[in-house]
Measured scan of single mutants.
Amino acid sequence: MSIQHFRVALIPFFAAFCLPVFAHPETLVKVKDAEDQLGARVGYIELDLNSGKILESFRPEERFPMMSTFKVLLCGAVLSRVDAGQEQLGRRIHYSQNDLVEYSPVTEKHLTDGMTVRELCSAAITMSDNTAANLLLTTIGGPKELTAFLHNMGDHVTRLDRWEPELNEAIPNDERDTTMPAAMATTLRKLLTGELLTLASRQQLIDWMEADKVAGPLLRSALPAGWFIADKSGAGERGSRGIIAALGPDGKPSRIVVIYTTGSQATMDERNRQIAEIGASLIKHW
């Protein structure tokens, strides 16, 4: 067993022997301040990774656009098919120029040779490549099948209805392509620590998230040296922004954090800054 596999296998073990965790309302004060600064709703939840206990939450059962955070769930569904012998990570998928959609920095470079399922998941999570996500959605049967996968996990809230990039439209009061912070946090925890996926697939999923290259201005910008984070960000229309993450000190994750916002007129930089400040408060009061 590799060191990384050992780390993920012992996530519940280490967490069980940690000192009790206590909620700190100071972080919620910052979440509410972010709402004021952005002029928009902000949803927040913080779960203990081992027990699933909610440590703090704000608007945990209000719907927010998922945006690209759905790509972690998508690759979880792909990995479940791999575990069941219905898919192979090494299978190569070929596609054409007509398949390319807006923001496809990886797939646009491989029109000639195609990409493997493993490479597509890596591109979808680490670079948020939209064509990679659409190609992977095709392998599982489309958005409705991802929703069905989530329902089978016990998540009857999260739903995907459309493809990239239309799913980022974020129309107010439109339930399409949305989740709730509580539902997303619980589902992410199941994917990373539950028995739904094999140990190898859980490790692969967290490795992809740990290698995320496009979430630097968010929670990662607030992390002290030595902290662990595996995350996936999302951005959408109407001032929408979000991030889902597993993080913790001492090089291992111990909490799940989900943050979503929508309806702001603020710039992307300002949305990023507010999420980073929430992260800084979380870490300060850990």
Rank of each mutant, 00 (worst) to 15 (best):
P20W: 02
A230F: 02
N152S: 14
V157N: 14
P224Q: 06
K32T: 09
I243G: 01
Q4W: 08
M268P: 07
T158K: 00
G263E: 06
I93G: 02
T131W: 02
R238W: 10
R220M: 03
P172R: 11
R59P: 00
E108W: 08
P172Y: 11
M67D: 11
T262M: 09
S2W: 09
I259N: 01
G236P: 00
P217A: 14
K144T: 13
S128N: 00
Y260G: 00
S80W: 12
T107F: 02
Q4A: 10
I93A: 04
G114Q: 04
A16V: 15
Y44C: 03
H285Y: 12
T193H: 14
L136A: 06
R59T: 02
S240T: 07
G242P: 00
M66H: 05
E237V: 10
V8R: 12
T186V: 14
N50I: 11
Q97W: 11
W163H: 09
L191P: 00
S57Y: 11
L73K: 01
T27G: 03
W227A: 03
M268Q: 08
R273Y: 12
A230L: 05
P20K: 14
T261S: 10
P165C: 09
G236T: 05
E169R: 11
L89C: 05
A225C: 13
D113E: 14
T107L: 08
R81L: 09
G234R: 00
K144A: 15
R91M: 06
L188Y: 08
G39D: 12
G251A: 12
E277M: 10
Q203E: 15
Q204A: 12
P25W: 10
E119W: 02
I256C: 06
P172C: 10
D99A: 10
D155F: 01
I206G: 09
K30G: 05
P20T: 07
T187N: 11
I140L: 10
V117D: 00
I45F: 14
A200C: 13
L137Y: 09
L49V: 13
A23D: 05
Q37M: 14
A185I: 03
S122E: 15
S264L: 04
S57G: 11
A245C: 10
W208D: 05
G52K: 06
G39E: 15
L111C: 10
V42G: 01
K144N: 14
I206T: 13
T147I: 08
Y103M: 06
A182T: 12
N50M: 15
R118E: 15
A148T: 14
A276Q: 12
Q4K: 12
E169Q: 13
Q204F: 07
P143T: 07
G141Q: 07
L79F: 04
I171M: 15
L136K: 00
L73D: 04
H94K: 14
G76Y: 05
R238F: 14
V21C: 15
F228D: 03
A182P: 06
L196K: 15
I259E: 00
L188P: 00
L196M: 13
M184G: 02
I283D: 01
L38T: 09
S96V: 11
V258F: 02
D231M: 04
G114P: 03
A133G: 12
A123E: 04
D250I: 09
N168A: 08
R162G: 08
T139N: 10
G52F: 05
E102K: 08
V29E: 14
D155M: 01
L150K: 00
I3F: 10
E108S: 11
S68G: 00
V31I: 11
L137Q: 05
A246N: 05
L191Q: 04
P60R: 12
H151S: 11
E145A: 14
H94L: 13
H156C: 13
E277N: 11
T139F: 06
A266F: 08
F22W: 14
V42T: 06
N152A: 14
I243C: 08
N272G: 05
A148Q: 14
A16I: 10
I256P: 00
A84P: 03
A280Q: 15
E108T: 10
P65A: 06
R91H: 09
F70Q: 05
T27N: 05
V117K: 01
T187R: 01
V31F: 03
G154C: 06
S221C: 11
H24Y: 09
L111H: 09
P12E: 06
A215F: 03
T262C: 10
I206N: 08
V8M: 11
T267R: 11
R159H: 12
S233E: 01
L167M: 12
L191W: 05
T107V: 08
I229G: 02
W286D: 02
F14P: 02
M127S: 09
T187G: 08
E87H: 04
S281V: 15
P105V: 07
E46A: 10
P172F: 09
G248S: 03
P25Y: 09
S233W: 02
Y260A: 02
A211K: 12
E62Y: 08
V29T: 12
W227K: 00
P12W: 12
W163E: 11
L136S: 02
P105H: 06
S51G: 09
L146T: 04
L73E: 03
L247E: 02
S201A: 10
L146M: 13
L100V: 09
E102Q: 15
A84M: 10
G90K: 15
A200V: 11
K284Y: 14
T139E: 15
D129L: 00
K213P: 04
T27C: 08
G114T: 04
L282G: 03
G39T: 09
K30S: 10
E35K: 03
R118W: 15
T69Y: 03
W286S: 01
E87A: 07
L74H: 01
A185L: 02
R238T: 10
S201N: 09
M1K: 01
P12M: 14
N168E: 04
E277R: 12
A148C: 13
P12Y: 13
M180T: 15
A182G: 13
V72D: 00
D83M: 03
R162A: 07
P12L: 11
E237R: 13
M180K: 14
L188H: 04
Q97N: 10
G52V: 04
L79I: 05
E61Q: 14
Q4R: 13
A9E: 06
L89W: 06
D33L: 13
E210V: 14
D161S: 07
T69F: 01
S122L: 15
E35V: 04
P253C: 11
S104E: 01
N134W: 02
K252M: 13
E62C: 07
E26A: 13
T267I: 09
M1T: 02
L150H: 04
I244S: 03
L199K: 11
E56Q: 11
M66A: 07
L219T: 03
R91W: 04
S221A: 13
I259H: 00
L219M: 09
P65Y: 03
L196D: 11
D231R: 03
F17I: 11
I140M: 07
W227S: 02
A124P: 00
D250T: 11
T27S: 07
S2P: 09
H24D: 13
M115R: 05
I259M: 08
P249W: 04
D250L: 12
V42M: 10
A246S: 09
R7D: 07
M1L: 07
S96E: 13
E210K: 11
P60A: 15
G43S: 06
E166V: 12
A9C: 11
I259R: 00
I45C: 13
P253H: 10
R63A: 07
P172L: 12
M180Y: 14
R241P: 00
H151E: 12
I171C: 14
A182H: 12
E169C: 11
M180A: 14
L28P: 05
F6Q: 09
A124G: 07
G279I: 04
A211L: 13
S51N: 12
L191G: 02
G141C: 05
I229K: 02
E175R: 12
H156G: 15
D269P: 09
I243E: 03
G141D: 07
K284M: 10
R220W: 02
M1Y: 01
R238P: 09
D250A: 13
R159E: 06
Y44W: 03
G242T: 02
K232S: 00
M184Q: 04
E210H: 10
D83F: 02
I54D: 06
V72G: 03
E237F: 09
D174A: 05
G114C: 04
K53G: 11
D174H: 04
L55G: 06
A246D: 03
N168T: 07
P12G: 11
T107H: 01
G39K: 15
V72T: 09
